[in-house]
Design a protein around this nucleic acid. Structure first.
Length: 574
RNA sequence: CGGAGUGUAGCUCAGCCCGGCUAGAGCACUACGUUCGGGACGUAGGGGCCGGAGGUUCGAAUCCUCUCACUCCGACCA
C-alpha cells in the first residue's frame, strides 16, 4: 500500500451536502468523504480512500485467519448450477440467488460452501490431509428484495468466509473455537465494540452457531443485553433466545374447585383484569398456532408475549404460523378471547410457558364464548403436554446471570460462525479414509464476516458532527499534514516536504498541499477523519513548533518538531 | 413482492396544484483580482434531452397514460 499521498494529486471527491439517498450516518459520511459511491440499489463503488480502509480491514482479517492456520483461496463468482442443485440450495435460496439469463447453467455465488466442499471432494482423501481451514475474501452476490442502509445491506458485498474441515467432532470444536477467538481479535483490532450471541443455524443446517453483533439503531436483529462495568457487555442474547429472571406464578394456598363465570364483554386479558378485579399474572392467555399442519395451544402468563422462534424450537416444527380466526372457531368452538386449557379438544397439544409451571388459582377461557374459568389448577384441571420457555423477555427484567436489567437493542450482524457438520460433505461426497480405512464424511464448519459491515459499523460507532474518527488500524492514512499558507512561506513548504518524507517511512501520510483556504482544509481533515492531523502554520513553525490534533479526542497540542515522533508514537501506538 | 414517496446542473433543492417569453437558486467548477488558522469576497463565465416513451394542447418541467430508477415502511433476510 502506498504510504505517501499528496492531496493535490489524489482523487478524494468530498462534498458538503448530504446525499439524499444516504439515510444513515455511516453512509452519509462515507459518501461525503469521497470513499464510496452508490452505483445502483445495493451496489457500491469504492473510491481510493474507502478502498484503502477496506484493504486494511481485509488485511487484519487475513492476518488473524492465517494465524489460526487458514489458507487463502480465490474462488469464482460464477458457479455451475449443478453443484448448488446437489445440496438443494437452488431451491432453498430461491430468489436470493442471481441466475445468469443468457447462460442458464451458471449462477452468481451467494456464498461458497458448495464450491469449497467440491474442491475438498476432489483432493481430500485421507485423515492425514486434515484438518484444514480454507478461506476467501471476495465479492458475494445476493438478490436482496430490498437493499438498504448503504453498504450495510447490498446486493453485492465483500465477505470473508472460511470453512473448517475436520475428521472428528472434537476437531470441529477446536476449529470453531479458533475462529471464535480469531473473530474477537479481528473486531477488536478494527476498533469495534461488539457482543456475541448464540443463534439458530437457520437454513444453513448444522448445530451450534454464534453471531457477532454490533449495537445500532439501524440493526435488523433485536437483542437483549446488559452493560458491563468495563464499558463492554455482560449478558447478550438474541431476543429469540434471551431469558430473564422472572418469578414463576406458582401456587396459592387456597385451591377451591374450578368455577365458571360469565365474561360477556372481556375479550382481552386487560379487559378481563379490569372487569373482574383479577391479578394479571394469574390470567393465562391462550395462543393458537398451526405447527406443521397441527394446531397447538400455547398457554402464556397474562400479557406475556409469545416468541415464535422459541415455540418453533420447543415443538420442533419445520414451519409454523398463527391460526386464523376461522381455524380457531372450528377447533375450539369458541373465539379467541375465550380459549383455555380446560376442556380443550381431545387431541390438541397443549403446552405452557415455564412461568406457569404447575400453577393454580388461574383464570382462563372456557372454550365457550363469553365464559371463563377461575381457580384453575394446571396440575388438577388441565393436561399440559410440557412446559417450555416461550415468552419474549422485556426490557428492565433482570438478566439470567444477574448482571443487571436487560436493555433491548437493535443490532447488526458482522460475523457468524457455524458448526455445519456433514450436511455439505455428505451431499457432495467429500469423504476421507480414517485410520481404519473406513470412509467418513468430512466434518465442516462455516464462518463469515461482512467486510463492509465492519466499515459501516465502525463509522456508526466513531463519528461526530464534523466527520469520521478512524482508528489508526483501519484509517486510510494515519496522519494528515495540513499546510497553511505554503504558497507564501518557504519554511512551511520545506518543513512540510521534510515531514512528509520522514513520516511516510513509518506511517501512511496524506499531505494536504492544496492551494485552498485553511477552513476548507480543516473541514476536509475532520470529515476524512485521519487519527492525527499535523497543522503547519507560520506562527508555530517560526519557533520550531507544530500543532498536533488528535481527531478522536479533539485534543490539540503544540509540540516542538523534535518531540513530534514521540507524540505520534503515543497517539498512533506504533 | 405489497404500501407510500421522489426523479429538474456534479451535489442540495425551488418551479409543477393553476400549462405561456431564453428553466432558476445555493454549493461545486473555470478565469482574474483581493483574501489566507475553521467550508472567505468581488467580477465575469461554463454546465440541463426537467428520468424515458407515448398522448392531450396553438403551446408541456407543469396535465393524462405507460415505463424505468431511487428512497422509505412492511414481507423477506446465509
Amino acid at each position: 500500500m502506498h504510504n505517501a499521498q499528496r492531496y493535490s494529486q489524489a482523487f478524494i471527491p468530498t462534498q458538503k451536502e448530504v446525499p439524499t439517498e444516504a439515510q444513515i450516518p455511516s453512509h452519509q459520511l462515507l459518501v461525503r468523504g469521497g470513499m464510496v459511491r452508490q452505483l445502483a440499489a445495493g451496489v457500491f463503488s469504492y473510491y481510493p480512500l474507502g478502498w484503502r480502509t477496506a484493504q486494511k480491514v481485509m488485511n487484519i482479517i487475513r492476518e488473524e485467519m492465517n494465524a489460526i492456520g487458514g489458507m487463502e483461496f480465490h474462488l469464482p463468482a460464477l458457479n455451475p448450477i449443478e453443484i448448488w442443485e446437489a445440496t438443494n440450495r437452488v431451491e432453498a435460496m430461491g430468489d436470493v440467488m442471481f441466475h445468469i439469463k443468457n447462460r442458464p447453467g451458471l449462477v452468481l455465488a451467494p456464498t461458497h460452501e458448495e464450491i469449497i466442499t467440491h474442491h475438498a471432494t476432489q483432493h481430500i482423501q485421507s485423515y492425514k490431509d486434515l484438518p484444514q481451514i480454507w478461506y476467501q475474501i471476495q465479492t458475494k452476490f445476493r438478490n436482496e428484495a430490498r437493499p438498504r442502509s448503504g453498504i450495510l445491506r447490498g446486493r453485492q458485498f465483500l465477505m470473508k468466509d472460511s470453512y473448517s474441515m475436520d475428521t472428528t467432532w472434537e476437531g470441529l470444536d477446536e476449529s470453531y473455537d479458533k475462529h471464535a477467538q480469531a473473530y474477537r481479535n479481528i473486531f477488536t483490532r478494527c476498533g469495534l465494540k461488539f457482543f456475541v450471541v448464540g443463534a439458530s443455524s437457520g437454513a444453513m443446517g448444522g448445530s451450534k452457531s454464534q453471531e457477532f453483533m454490533v449495537e445500532s439503531e439501524f440493526g435488523e436483529d433485536t437483542c437483549a443485553i446488559t452493560d458491563a462495568p468495563d464499558g463492554g457487555y455482560a449478558y447478550a442474547a438474541n431476543i429469540e433466545a434471551a431469558t430473564s429472571l422472572v418469578e414463576k406464578v406458582g401456587r396459592v394456598e387456597s385451591n377451591p374447585p374450578i368455577e365458571r363465570f360469565a365474561t360477556p364483554t372481556a375479550k382481552t386479558i386487560d379487559e378481563l383484569v379490569q372487569q373482574h378485579q383479577l391479578i394479571e399474572h394469574r390470567c393465562a392467555k391462550s395462543v393458537v398456532y398451526i405447527c406443521d399442519d397441527k394446531p397447538i395451544l400455547a398457554l402464556m402468563r397474562g400479557n406475556d408475549e409469545l416468541n415464535e422462534a422459541k415455540l418453533q424450537s420447543a415443538v420442533k416444527a419445520a414451519q409454523l404460523r398463527p391460526a386464523t380466526d376461522d381455524e380457531i372457531l372450528r377447533i375450539f368452538g369458541a373465539h379467541c378471547g375465550s380459549l383455555g386449557p380446560v376442556n380443550a379438544p381431545k387431541d390438541l397439544l397443549v403446552i405452557a410457558d415455564t412461568l406457569l409451571e404447575n400453577a393454580n388459582g388461574l383464570v382462563s377461557g372456557a372454550n365457550q364464548d363469553g365464559v371463563h374459568f377461575k381457580n384453575i389448577d394446571l396440575q388438577r384441571d388441565a393436561s399440559i403436554a410440557f412446559y417450555a420457555d416461550l415468552r419474549t423477555v422485556q426490557a428492565g427484567e433482570q438478566a439470567p446471570d444477574g448482571s443487571g436489567p436487560l436493555r433491548m437493542v437493535k443490532a447488526i450482524e458482522i460475523g457468524h460462525i457455524f458448526k455445519l457438520g456433514t450436511k455439505y460433505s455428505v451431499a457432495l461426497n467429500a469423504n476421507f479414509l480414517d485410520k481404519d480405512g473406513k470412509q467418513q464424511p468430512i466434518i465442516m464448519g462455516s464462518y463469515g464476516i461482512g467486510v463492509e459491515r465492519i466499515i459501516a459499523c465502525f463509522v456508526e460507532q466513531h463519528h461526530d458532527e464534523k466527520g469520521i474518527q478512524w482508528s489508526a488500524t483501519i484509517a486510510p492514512y494515519h496522519v494528515q499534514i495540513v499546510l497553511l499558507g505554503a504558497n507564501k512561506s518557504e519554511l512551511i513548504r520545506a518543513t512540510g516536504e521534510e515531514l512528509f518524507a520522514q513520516l511516510s517511512r513509518t506511517y501512511h501520510v496524506l499531505l494536504d498541499d492544496r492551494d485552498t483556504t485553511a477552513g476548507v482544509k480543516f473541514n476536509d481533515a475532520d470529515l476524512l477523519g485521519m487519527p492525527v492531523q499535523l497543522v503547519l502554520g507560520e506562527k508555530n513553525l517560526s519557533v520550531g513548533n507544530v500543532e498536533v490534533k488528535h481527531r478522536i479526542t479533539g485534543e490539540r497540542s503544540i509540540v516542538a518538531l523534535t518531540d513530534l515522533n514521540a507524540l505520534l508514537q503515543s497517539l498512533l501506538g506504533n
